[in-house]
C-alpha cells in the first residue's frame, strides 16, 4: 500500500510534465524537446526568488511564472516562426532540441556547472501517519496539486469558452480563425499553461531532492513522452492517467520485480502502447480532448 502511494506521488510529477507536453502536442502539433529545460528553469525561478528574500508562496509563484514565460518565449521566438515558414514535424524536433541545449547551457554557465541547494523551509516536508501508513507531506501535496490542477484544466477545456477555443484551434487552425478565434493567442496561453505545469513539477522535484542543477530535469523528458503516448496525444485526462500509471508501474517494478527494470518501465510502456494501441488510452488523431 505504501508503495502505491509512492507510485501515485511519483506519477504526479510525471503527469504534470506530460500534460503540458500533450497539450502542446495536441494543440500545436509540436513535439517539444525543450520541456525538460522549462521544468528546470521553473525550479531555478523559485530558487532565485528565494535567494532574493521572497516568502515561500511568492517564490513558488515566481517559479511557476518563470516556467510559463520561458515556454511562451520558446513558442514566440522559435516554434511560431518555424510554423509560419512551413516546418515539417521533424524540424520542430531539431529546433526544440537546439533550444534545450541553449537553455541548459545558460544555466550551466551561470551555475558554473555546480549543483545548488534548493530551499525547503516553508514547503511541506514532514511526515504524517494515517493508520499503518506513513506518508510524506510532500507526497500528499504533489498528489493533491496534480489532481486539483488536472481537474481545473479539464473543466476549463470542456466547459469554458476558452476551452472550446482551444479545442477548435487544435482541430483546425483555419476553421478556428474563421470563427473569430485567434490561433496565436491560443498558442500563447497553451504554452503558458504547459510551462506553468512543468514548473510546478520542477519545484517539487527541487524540494524533494533539496538540490537543483542544470541537468536536473533531463531524465524526465523521455518519461513525459511516454506519458503523452500512453495517454493519447492531446488528452489531458489521458496524460494524468498515463502519468500515474507509469509512476505506479515504475515503483511496483522496484518492489516486486527488480530495480533494474525501473528504467525499462517507461520505454516498455511506450512500445507496448504503440504496437497495440497507437492512439493511447484516450486519444484520437490530433485533437484536444478532455
Amino acid at each position: 500500500m505504501q508503495q502505491l502511494i509512492n507510485g501515485v506521488a511519483l506519477g504526479g510529477t510525471f503527469a504534470l510534465l506530460g500534460v503540458g507536453l500533450t497539450l502542446i502536442w495536441g494543440v500545436m502539433g509540436v513535439l517539444t524537446f525543450a520541456q525538460a529545460q522549462v521544468l528546470t528553469w521553473g525550479g531555478f525561478g523559485t530558487l532565485v526568488a528565494w535567494e532574493l528574500g521572497a516568502s515561500v508562496w511568492v517564490a513558488f509563484g515566481a517559479g511557476v511564472l518563470t516556467g510559463a514565460v520561458v515556454c511562451v518565449l520558446v513558442e514566440v521566438t522559435v516554434i511560431g516562426p518555424l510554423r509560419r515558414r512551413g516546418g515539417s514535424e521533424f524540424s520542430f524536433v531539431a529546433a526544440t532540441m537546439g533550444v534545450s541545449v541553449l537553455l541548459g547551457f545558460f544555466l550551466e554557465w551561470r551555475t558554473h556547472a555546480q549543483t545548488l541547494t534548493f530551499p525547503r523551509e516553508g514547503f511541506p516536508t514532514g511526515s504524517m501517519r494515517i493508520g499503518a501508513l506513513t506518508l510524506s507531506e510532500l507526497q500528499v501535496a504533489i498528489i493533491v496539486i496534480t489532481i486539483l490542477v488536472s481537474a481545473a484544466l479539464m473543466a476549463t477545456l470542456r466547459w469554458t469558452r476558452f476551452g472550446r477555443d482551444v479545442r477548435a484551434v487544435a482541430e483546425s487552425r483555419e476553421v478556428a480563425s474563421l470563427l473569430g478565434v485567434s490561433p496565436r493567442a491560443t498558442y500563447w496561453v497553451v504554452s503558458a499553461i504547459a510551462g506553468a505545469l512543468a514548473a510546478i513539477a520542477g519545484i517539487f522535484q527541487g524540494v524533494s531532492n533539496a538540490n537543483i542543477s542544470y541537468s536536473s530535469g533531463d531524465h524526465l523528458l523521455m518519461i513525459a513522452f511516454a506519458v503523452a503516448v500512453v495517454g493519447g496525444i492531446g488528452s489531458v485526462g489521458g496524460a494524468v492517467v498515463g502519468g500515474l500509471a507509469i509512476g505506479i508501474v515504475q515503483v511496483f517494478a522496484v518492489a516486486y520485480v527488480s530495480s533494474a527494470f525501473q528504467q525499462a518501465a517507461a520505454f516498455l510502456a511506450i512500445l507496448i502502447v504503440l504496437v497495440l494501441r497507437p492512439q493511447g488510452l484516450f486519444g484520437r488523431e490530433e485533437t484536444v480532448r478532455v
Partner: peptide
C-alpha cells in the same frame, strides 16, 4: 552554444 544556436537558426532559415 554554437551548436544549439545553429540548430535553431538553421531550422528557421531552412526548415527542410
Amino acid at each position: 552554444v554554437g551548436y544549439g544556436a545553429a540548430l535553431v537558426v538553421i531550422m528557421l532559415v531552412a526548415p527542410n
